[in-house]
Simulated assay, not measured.
Amino acid sequence: MVRVVQAPARTEQDATAALLADRYGRRTAGGGRRLRARILIAALAVAGIAVLAWIAVDMFAPSVESRDVGFHVVDSESVRVTFDVTKPAERSAVCTLEALSTGYGQVGLLQVEIGPQVADTVRITAEVATSEEATTGLVRACTFTD
């Protein structure tokens, strides 16, 4: 006995799909590309949000700032530096003072510790010992110690 197998008849949906494929072309296997693109976009979005969060936290973090007010060359062995420090009153900081010569070479260095104060901004005067006569004295940087 011979068995005859017939191809299943096309349904209306198959006919529509064939008509659209003939008109617009067959679909390619581009689903993998779309998935990779979506994963890349999601990863970039997460990285962008992380950067924005880091910037926001850094903007609102307390900081210590200094402003040079003036200096006075006492003699060939010292210079007096006056500066303002703004920081949260309850925090401690250390400021590095620098004395410079006419050629902008460093001739003196001093670290001044500033403990908790009653006000956020304080004016401090400190004397920096020098190895030769200085022509200026200034604050290099201030940082928190706690």
Rank of each mutant, 00 (worst) to 15 (best):
residue 58 D to A: 15
residue 58 D to W: 13
residue 59 M to Y: 15
residue 60 F to V: 15
residue 61 A to Q: 14
residue 61 A to W: 12
residue 61 A to P: 12
residue 61 A to C: 10
residue 61 A to T: 15
residue 61 A to V: 12
residue 63 S to A: 14
residue 64 V to R: 05
residue 67 R to F: 11
residue 67 R to P: 08
residue 69 V to Q: 12
residue 69 V to L: 14
residue 71 F to I: 06
residue 72 H to K: 12
residue 73 V to E: 09
residue 73 V to Y: 02
residue 73 V to H: 03
residue 74 V to G: 05
residue 74 V to H: 08
residue 74 V to P: 03
residue 74 V to E: 12
residue 75 D to F: 00
residue 76 S to C: 11
residue 77 E to N: 13
residue 77 E to Q: 14
residue 78 S to N: 07
residue 78 S to L: 11
residue 78 S to K: 04
residue 79 V to I: 09
residue 79 V to F: 05
residue 80 R to M: 07
residue 80 R to N: 11
residue 81 V to P: 03
residue 81 V to D: 07
residue 81 V to F: 05
residue 82 T to G: 05
residue 82 T to N: 06
residue 82 T to H: 08
residue 84 D to M: 11
residue 84 D to R: 12
residue 85 V to G: 06
residue 85 V to R: 06
residue 86 T to H: 04
residue 86 T to E: 09
residue 86 T to I: 09
residue 86 T to Q: 10
residue 87 K to W: 01
residue 88 P to I: 05
residue 89 A to Y: 13
residue 89 A to S: 15
residue 91 R to C: 01
residue 91 R to N: 06
residue 92 S to E: 07
residue 92 S to R: 12
residue 92 S to W: 10
residue 93 A to G: 00
residue 94 V to I: 13
residue 95 C to H: 06
residue 96 T to P: 02
residue 96 T to F: 08
residue 96 T to H: 08
residue 96 T to S: 11
residue 96 T to V: 10
residue 97 L to I: 00
residue 98 E to C: 03
residue 98 E to N: 00
residue 98 E to R: 05
residue 99 A to C: 08
residue 101 S to T: 02
residue 102 T to E: 13
residue 102 T to C: 14
residue 102 T to S: 15
residue 103 G to D: 14
residue 103 G to M: 09
residue 103 G to R: 09
residue 105 G to I: 08
residue 105 G to Q: 00
residue 106 Q to N: 09
residue 107 V to W: 00
residue 107 V to L: 01
residue 108 G to E: 02
residue 108 G to Q: 05
residue 110 L to S: 07
residue 110 L to M: 08
residue 111 Q to K: 04
residue 112 V to F: 04
residue 113 E to W: 08
residue 113 E to H: 02
residue 113 E to R: 03
residue 114 I to F: 03
residue 114 I to R: 06
residue 114 I to E: 00
residue 115 G to D: 00
residue 115 G to W: 04
residue 116 P to T: 03
residue 116 P to A: 04
residue 117 Q to G: 08
residue 117 Q to I: 03
residue 118 V to T: 05
residue 118 V to C: 04
residue 119 A to F: 02
residue 119 A to G: 04
residue 120 D to K: 07
residue 120 D to Q: 00
residue 120 D to A: 05
residue 121 T to E: 02
residue 122 V to P: 04
residue 123 R to A: 06
residue 124 I to P: 07
residue 124 I to Y: 06
residue 124 I to V: 07
residue 124 I to K: 01
residue 124 I to F: 04
residue 125 T to V: 07
residue 125 T to N: 07
residue 127 E to A: 08
residue 129 A to D: 12
residue 129 A to H: 12
residue 129 A to L: 15
residue 129 A to E: 15
residue 130 T to N: 08
residue 130 T to D: 09
residue 132 E to Y: 10
residue 132 E to P: 13
residue 133 E to T: 10
residue 133 E to P: 14
residue 134 A to W: 11
residue 136 T to M: 12
residue 137 G to Q: 02
residue 137 G to S: 01
residue 139 V to D: 10
residue 140 R to E: 13
residue 141 A to H: 11
residue 142 C to T: 01
residue 142 C to V: 06
residue 143 T to M: 14
residue 143 T to Y: 13
residue 144 F to K: 07
residue 144 F to M: 09
residue 145 T to A: 01
